[in-house]
Design a protein around this nucleic acid. Structure first.
Length: 575
RNA sequence: CGGGGUGUGGCGCAGCCCGGUAGCGCGCUUGCUUUGGGAGCAAGAUGUCGAGAGUUCGAAUCCCUCCACCCCGACCA
C-alpha cells in the first residue's frame, strides 16, 4: 500500500468531546469518525485494525470447533415475546414497525434467532453438540453511550451459541471456550484477566468475563494475589465478619445520645465532626422496592466506609429504585442525610458488617442531628434481614479463604455463559435422545466485543506520541518513510524496492510517498501506532544502510539495506 | 431519565457579563523558497455564530422554547 493511495486523516488536536485517551487517539489517528451518539464510521485505517482483530477471533473460533454463520440484524419482535425477554430488555431494544405494521427489532444479541434456527434444523442427539457463531453488527440503544467505540450503541460483536444433549457436555464446551478466549486475548497482545461474573439480563448460571486491565475501565475487579480467585466486584462476596466489631469497633455499650451535627450529612463528615472512626458510622439508604400493587419503603444499612452493591441488594429486596426526597420525608419525617433506622418500623436490611457493629453512629431522623452509641437489640430491633449487600473493598478476606482481596479496573471484552435451558425451554428447542425421548437442549453463549477491543487495546497501549498497537492488530506492520521522496531518485528507487520486497515477503508495509516533511510523517506513523518504521534517506544509502526504529524504541538502529527484509521478518516473529 | 456543562469556518479556541462591521491559532488553496522531527514568506478561500420565536433602531451577546453533544449516576460486549 502507498500512502498517497490510501486515506490518512490524522488530526493535530483532538475534538473536545472525546474524554478518554483511546477515544481521542482513535479520532486523532483517523481511525473513526462520529456519525451520531454512539454510532461511528470506521475509516479505512480503523477498519484495518478492526479486521485484524476480527480475523484472530475467527481463526481461534474455527480452531475451537465452532462454525460460522450470519444471522440477520433485523428480527421479528414475536421471537422476543416468545422468549419472554421483550419486556425485560426494555428501551435498550430498538423496535420499529415495517410498512405492514409488523413489529421488528434491531438485534442486540441473537439467542432467540439462533435457537429458532436450531429448533428447526436439529432433531437428534446425533446432531449434537453444535456451536454456531457470527461476527456481526449489534445495536443496543444504550442510555448513555460514551468513550467512543468502547460503549457505542452500534458495535461489532462475535457471538457464539452452543447446543448440547447434556449439561456435562455444555460444561466441556464452556471450558473449551474459556481456553479459546484466553488464547484469543493473548494473541491480540492484551493484558487480561478472566473473572467470575454476574449473569445479568442474559440469564443462566455459570459465567466468566474477560477483562482487559486498564485504569480507565468501567468495571472493578476483585482478585486475590494469594490464590486464583478473581471476580467482578458486582459479584465478589463480602464474607461475613467472624469477630464482633471486626477488630475495629470496640464493644462499649455506651448509652444512646443525640448529638447536633449541623450540615453534616455524609458519614465522612459526621465521623470527622464527632471525632469517631468512619467504621463506626452506619449509613441508611432509602429505596422503594417493587411489590405487588405498589412499592415498599425499605432501609438498607451499610457501614459508613462501605458502598452499596445494587446487584446484591436487588437479589435480597427485589427490583428497587432509590427513594425520592418526598418519599423519605413521608416515611421518616426527615430529609436524607440525617436518616437512620432507630424508630423506623418498616423493613430494614442490614449488611453483614453492620449486624456485628455496636455503639454505632447513625442519623437521628431529625434534621441536623445524629445518634451515637446506637446498639441493635437495645435501641432498635435486630434487623429483619442480614445479607451481603455491599461492594468488597481492598483488604477484605478472599471468599476462598486464602488471603485478602485487591482491586483493579478492567474493560469487559468477553463474556461466556452457561445458559442452560433458559431459552431452549421458552422456545421449545428440543431433540430426541437415544431412547427416543424428547429433551430440552442445554445451551451456552459466548460473546466478544470486537470493536470494543480496538478501544481497549489503545487504552492499554499508548504514550505521549500516540497509539502503540500490539503487533497483531496494527493497521500496518511497517511504515517506510523516505526522505525527500519527490526529489531524490536514489531514495525513491530504494524505498520502492524495499516496499516491493516486503510485500513479496508477506509483510504488511505502507510506503509513505506523500512528500510530506519528515516531521509530519514521523508524527503521523507514531500517532497511528505502526510498530515498525524504516527511514530511507540519502545519507544512509551512501553506505548501503537503512534506519530502523520500533514504535517503543528510544534509539534508531542502522541496518544494511540488503538485510532489512530479513531483519523485519525476525522482528515480526518476535513481536 | 435525574444532576452538571458546552454549542462561533474542517479542528482547537477568544468574543457573550457590559448589544453596535465576527476574530485568533492550526488546517485548506495558489506561488516561491525549504526538506532528518508537525517549515518560511506572500496572496487567498471558507461562517444560516446549534434551531426557532421574542425584546431592540440594532442580537453571537439579553429573554423564552426546542435540538444536539459532552461529563457524573442506573445498563452491557
Amino acid at each position: 500500500m502507498r500512502a498517497s493511495q490510501f486515506f490518512i486523516a490524522t488530526l493535530k488536536e483532538a475534538p473536545s468531546d472525546a474524554e478518554i485517551v483511546s477515544h481521542q487517539l482513535m479520532l486523532r489517528a483517523g481511525l473513526i469518525r462520529r456519525l451520531a451518539g454512539g454510532i461511528y464510521t470506521w475509516l479505512p485505517m480503523g477498519l484495518r485494525v478492526l479486521r485484524k482483530v476480527e480475523n484472530i477471533v475467527r481463526q481461534e473460533m474455527d480452531r475451537a470447533g465452532a462454525i460460522e454463520l450470519l444471522m440477520p440484524a433485523v428480527q421479528p419482535f414475536e421471537l422476543w415475546e416468545e422468549s419472554g425477554r421483550g419486556p425485560k430488555y426494555g428501551p435498550e431494544l430498538l423496535r420499529f414497525k415495517d410498512r405492514h405494521q409488523r413489529e421488528f427489532v434491531i438485534g442486540p444479541t441473537h439467542e432467540e434467532v439462533i435457537t429458532d434456527v436450531v429448533r428447526r434444523e436439529i432433531r437428534s442427539y446425533r446432531q449434537l453438540p453444535r456451536h454456531f457463531y457470527q461476527i456481526q453488527t449489534k445495536f443496543r440503544d444504550e442510555i448513555r453511550p460514551r468513550f467512543g467505540v468502547m460503549r457505542g450503541r452500534e458495535f461489532l460483536m462475535k457471538d457464539g451459541y452452543s447446543f448440547h444433549a447434556s449439561y456435562a457436555d455444555l460444561e466441556r464446551e464452556y471450558r473449551n471456550m474459556y481456553d479459546s478466549y484466553s488464547r484469543i486475548f493473548s494473541r491480540l497482545g492484551l493484558k487480561f484477566r478472566a473473572v467470575a461474573a454476574d449473569t445479568g439480563a442474559i440469564g443462566g448460571t455459570g459465567s466468566h468475563e474477560f477483562h482487559v486491565l486498564a485504569d480507565s475501565g468501567e468495571d472493578a475487579i476483585a482478585f486475590c494475589p494469594a490464590s486464583d480467585y478473581a471476580a467482578n466486584v458486582e459479584l465478589a462476596e463480602a464474607v461475613a465478619p467472624t469477630k464482633v466489631g471486626a477488630g475495629e469497633t470496640v464493644k462499649l455499650a455506651a448509652p444512646m445520645e443525640k448529638k447536633a451535627t449541623p450540615n453534616k450529612t455524609k458519614c465522612e463528615d459526621v465521623a470527622a465532626f464527632l471525632g469517631l472512626p468512619l467504621t463506626q458510622t452506619v449509613k441508611a439508604i432509602a429505596v422503594m422496592a417493587e411489590k405487588e400493587g405498589g412499592s415498599e419503603f425499605v432501609l438498607l444499612l451499610l457501614r459508613g466506609d462501605h458502598d452499596l452493591n445494587e446487584i446484591k441488594a436487588q437479589k435480597v429486596v427485589g427490583e428497587f429504585r432509590f427513594a425520592r426526597d418526598e418519599e423519605i420525608v413521608d416515611a421518616l419525617g426527615c430529609k436524607a442525610g440525617y436518616i437512620g433506622a432507630v424508630g423506623f418500623n418498616g423493613r430494614v436490611v442490614a449488611d453483614r458488617s453492620v449486624a456485628v457493629m455496636s455503639d454505632c453512629v447513625c442519623g437521628a431522623n431529625e434534621e441536623g442531628y445524629h445518634l451515637t452509641g446506637v446498639n441493635f437489640g437495645r435501641d432498635l430491633p435486630q434487623p429483619e434481614t442480614v445479607a451481603d449487600i455491599r461492594n468488597v473493598v481492598e483488604g477484605d478476606p478472599s471468599p476462598d479463604g486464602k488471603g485478602t482481596l485487591e482491586l483493579c479496573r478492567g474493560i469487559e471484552v468477553g463474556h461466556i455463559f452457561q445458559l442452560r435451558t433458559k431459552y431452549a425451554e421458552a422456545l421449545k428447542c428440543t431433540f430426541l435422545d437415544e431412547q427416543g425421548k424428547d429433551q430440552v437442549m442445554e445451551m451456552g453463549c459466548y460473546g466478544i466485543g470486537v470493536s470494543r477491543i480496538v478501544g481497549a487495546a489503545i487504552e492499554q497501549g499508548h504514550d505521549e506520541r500516540g497509539i502503540v498497537f500490539p503487533a497483531g492488530i496494527a493497521p500496518f506492520a511497517v511504515a517506510i518513510v523516505p526522505m525527500n521522496y519527490a526529489k531524490s531518485e536514489t531514495v525513491r528507487a530504494a524505498a520502492g524496492a524495499l516496499h516491493a520486497e516486503l510485500l513479496a515477503a508477506g509483510i504488511d508495509a505502507i510506503l509513505d510517498d506523500r512528500d510530506e516533511r519528515p516531521g509530519s510523517m514521523f508524527a503521523d506513523w507514531e500517532l497511528i501506532g505502526i510498530p515498525h518504521r524504516v527511514v530511507v534517506g540519502e545519507r544512509g544509502l551512501l553506505v548501503g544502510k537503512l534506519e530502523y526504529k520500533g514504535r517503543s524504541d528510544t534509539e534508531a538502529t542502522m541496518v544494511a539495506a540488503s538485510e532489512m527484509t530479513a531483519f523485519l521478518k525476525q522482528k515480526l516473529c518476535d513481536g
